[in-house]
Nucleic acid binder design. Structure first.
Lengths: 345, 345
DNA sequence: ACGGACAGATAAATCCTTTTACTTCCTAGA
DNA sequence: TCTAGGAAGTAAAAGGATTTATCTGTCCGT
């Protein structure tokens, strides 16, 4: 149990009667000019002592840490949310392939006030930063505009700031959802939205309403309710919408969580989904498969978003790219929470 | 956009006409012997140049990185699993409070074969390691036994290895679940288990069966099926159990995921939950609240497990503690997936 | 016998910070 | 006048690795 002190390159040099330089060259395979006899000696010593280079020292010297940070908003149990989880999983895969490690960073209010996020770079903590769940109110992101830090907004974009981003096409998502409901024959449609300060949430809603409008379907103000991005919020919103507008035959929700909540709310009110009211979600996360009924939803390729975002942030860091804005297409996943409208009266 | 090179303590020293030592002392508040005039000069320079100490250099010198690693198994979308997510959220909170950062580490086969997990310590990457989702087959964990590395098994324990651990009392969980079903009057009970190589899964099952047995209820071999720790597996297992034993009136599942899958499987077979068959889960994660019906389950205090595990691993690192084995009590969360047995025949 | 070329190896600088062990310079006491 | 001791500050080492520039020595050609 004794804290035995770690082996350094110095020890290897001593053990093998070579210089630090020689050992380093051998270990980094830049040993074109090292005789194979010396190489052997060095390697034997490395093996005998169980030497492994100190990563901190390497990073210090190389001026790069090999870390990428993932910044997530400060929400209760944020990592338990499959939306973030799926993105993180995808990012991890890509990072691992590229030999990078992932650092978790939660945007605690304090940290942001003290500009800790900028320090991440200044202090050489990380080589790049991936921002998940950003909102238009996160003005600390402005600190990165025009800086040479490798920062990317994942699955969102901030119109006010010119920042790099990789995201799904939420405008297309709105159109697809709207067309699906139109095709089924719905005319009385309600909307449960997430936070307005999330740009993609606005994109989704706007394009959804626009597409309905272009087919002559209007959505009055009271056909929309805030679902707070949670199941409970979705349930409450559904209940409220139902009370105000008993005639609605379909509900579109800004994400799967709210859609699942809405289904619970509707059932609670004695209605059947989809017979009485159809429900469409957005994201196509795992839970939508096991909701009852399984959720018809817009599939957003989060896996690919995560992968590309990670690749992009590395490209930025390495200076291979100056600016990134990618938008990936989405699709409709048909399950059982939608059908034609019930006959009213 | 130009890569302006970072400010170092040297620049501050030059700017303020002081020595490196002086600057360092001022910044670390060890400035008992520095005149306030000098202090002011230094601070002004720090401010003017926007100096922030390089974390890598600090870590190198302090011989501690300030990082803790979270090791998770290599499963598809592992971070999207609320079980891991909830633990990670809890650990993050505790780590943040203690001023530590979290590093994500996936136990890729390759890495394990190459003993990369040990390197995490040798290379001074991390000060401590928290292992989630470990199994009895993870014999690489043996490399940590008797080492002075701060390692902790989170919400599990490995009887073959004497490693530190913090976990829930899964034996108690089994007893509580069994007693609940016994109290309701069930006699024909089936079990959907997770992987046998997860020790807590075995604990749960053994204690569940033992408690049933002590009330004279036997569970024949064919009353148990493997749910693969997934919803799909749970659904398949339920279907199979039903086919072999049409008389079962209750199913206990090793975790919520499989329970939710089982409910889907039962509904699929035309049965109603809980009227025809009661279902009990284990974990009490978010989805169990929004399943239909909401799931009766064993509440495991994962939040507290995460917190304590993090605190413990820090105590180990700082040498304040030599060994840790904590077991936290669980409780029954009553929802609507259980009721008395239906009348058979 | 001598200059050039090349192989093999290394000293020293660098990355940045903290800390130990001095060095100065004063002042107060004897 | 001299000295002990405190105040203010600093040089240098340590922490561990990489890389540049340099140095030896050998061999070849002339």
């Amino acid at each position: 149990m004794a804290k035995r002190k770690p082996v350094s390159i110095r020890d290897v040099a001593r053990e093998s009667n070579a210089s630090l330089t020689t050992v380093s060259l051998v270990l980094n395979k830049r040993d074109g000019r090292i005789s194979s006899a010396t190489r052997e000696r060095v390697l034997k010593a490395v093996d005998k002592l169980g030497y492994v280079p100190n990563r901190l020292a390497q990073s210090l010297q190389a001026q790069k840490s090999g870390f990428l940070a993932i910044l997530v908003p400060e929400l209760r149990h944020v990592f338990a949310d499959p939306y973030f989880g799926e993105l993180i999983s995808a990012i991890e895969e890509a990072a691992n392939e590229a030999g990078y490690k992932l650092l978790l960073e939660v945007a605690h209010k304090q940290d942001i006030e003290q500009k800790r996020h900028v320090e991440l770079f200044q202090r050489r903590f990380v080589d790049g930063l991936l921002c998940l769940g950003s909102t238009n109110r996160d003005d600390f992101l402005g600190d990165f505009v025009g800086s040479d830090n490798a920062v990317i907004i994942v699955n969102n974009h901030l119109p006010a700031l010119s920042l790099n981003s990789v995201m799904c096409d939420y405008r297309q998502a709105g159109v697809l959802a709207a067309e699906h409901l139109i095709d089924l024959g719905h005319k009385d449609i309600a909307y449960i939205h997430g936070a307005a300060e999330v740009q993609t949430a606005s994109d989704l809603r706007e394009s959804f309403e626009a597409r309905l409008a272009s087919s002559g379907i209007k959505m009055p103000k009271n056909h929309a309710a805030d679902g707070l991005y949670t199941e409970a919020g979705g349930a409450a919103a559904a209940a409220q919408l139902l009370k105000t507008n008993p005639n609605i035959t379909a509900i579109m929700a800004g994400n799967d969580k709210m859609a699942i909540g809405a289904i619970a709310g509707l059932k609670n009110a004695g209605l059947s989904v989809p017979k009485d009211v159809s429900v469409v979600g957005c994201d196509d996360l795992q839970p939508s498969l096991y909701s009852d009924p399984p959720l018809t939803t817009i599939h957003t390729p989060l896996d690919e978003v995560g992968h590309r975002a990670c690749t992009a942030v590395l490209a930025l860091f390495e200076g291979k790219q100056e600016h990134v804005t990618e938008t990936l297409p989405v699709s409709l996943t048909l399950r059982n929470s939608t059908c034609g409208p019930r006959k009213i009266r």
